[in-house]
Amino acid sequence: MNQKSNLYRKEKIYGFLFILPPLLGLLIFTLYPMIYSIYGSFTDWDGLGQMNLIGLSNFKDLWTDELFHKALFNTLFMMLGIPIGIVLALLLALGLNRGVPGTTAFRVIYYVPVISSLAAVSIMWNWAYNGDYGLVNQFLDLFGITGPNWMANKYTVKPALIIMAVWKGVGYTMLLYLAALQSVSRSYYEAAELDGANSFKAFWHITWPMVRPVTFFIIVTNIIGGSQIFTEMNIMTPTGGPEYASASVVFYIWQKAFGNFQMGYASAMAVVLGAFIFVVTLIQFRMNEKQSFDVD
């Protein structure tokens, strides 16, 4: 008895010791800076001098800051790529799920852009979007279409970035769908076939509901990732693009914090971004709970 409680006490100590590094890491590198960000957002922090509390002034400035509105609009606009990517990825996964020859090869090929360095891929697409000699316009030329100078035109720069993002991410989404499709039992489809349902009906009433949790997961992770988009614009449009048409929120935060040293103001934007992601994640948790309730 005594030995057992001794054992348990030892286990308590070691158990805690083993999780101490990540716990400390979390406190030092995430939670403390997070609280500091919130505090900083109420100050005129410039990284050098004293931090003076200035109330909601930063947030009020955000409300009227045209560049921030543009960055916010651009970031949201580029999320149009999410539904496009989802539809394409699901179609690809449905195709691959039929066991056509070369499935493994297709999976690998579609996944290559996912593992490729975003910086290298951005450099490559920047060249591909070149107005005169780029791959994209030369391809369009085959159909007699004269393409624009994609990255220099304020109307085409965002669609160009969306196309690139879909190209880069579709393999990942496809893979998640493929895994979900493979876990749907064949017997559902056999039953549907017996009932005389055509393949569209089978998709709508069996496949789509069965992969709904994955769809939901993809939407949420894509919104979270999409709201932090940065590398592409930093490389392809270092100044934020024509009329700031390709600057994202994180791009603007980065410019303000490390270019202009308006750290208080940048922190206010970071807090807004964090709050946005917090709400999206919260919705996910709620919906997940609801969904598992549905299944029961």
């Binding site: 590198f29 500091y36 960000s37 932090q228 929120v249 750290m263 970071a270 964090g274 992601i277 994640t281």
Partner: peptide, 21 residues
């Protein structure tokens, strides 16, 4: 649970104080 919920804190929201640190 605390660790898991910290996953929803995006890097841009902590990068400025981290840089300062």
């Amino acid at each position: 649970l605390l660790m898991l919920s910290s996953l929803m804190i995006p890097y841009p929201a902590v990068m400025i104080p981290q840089f300062f640190m």
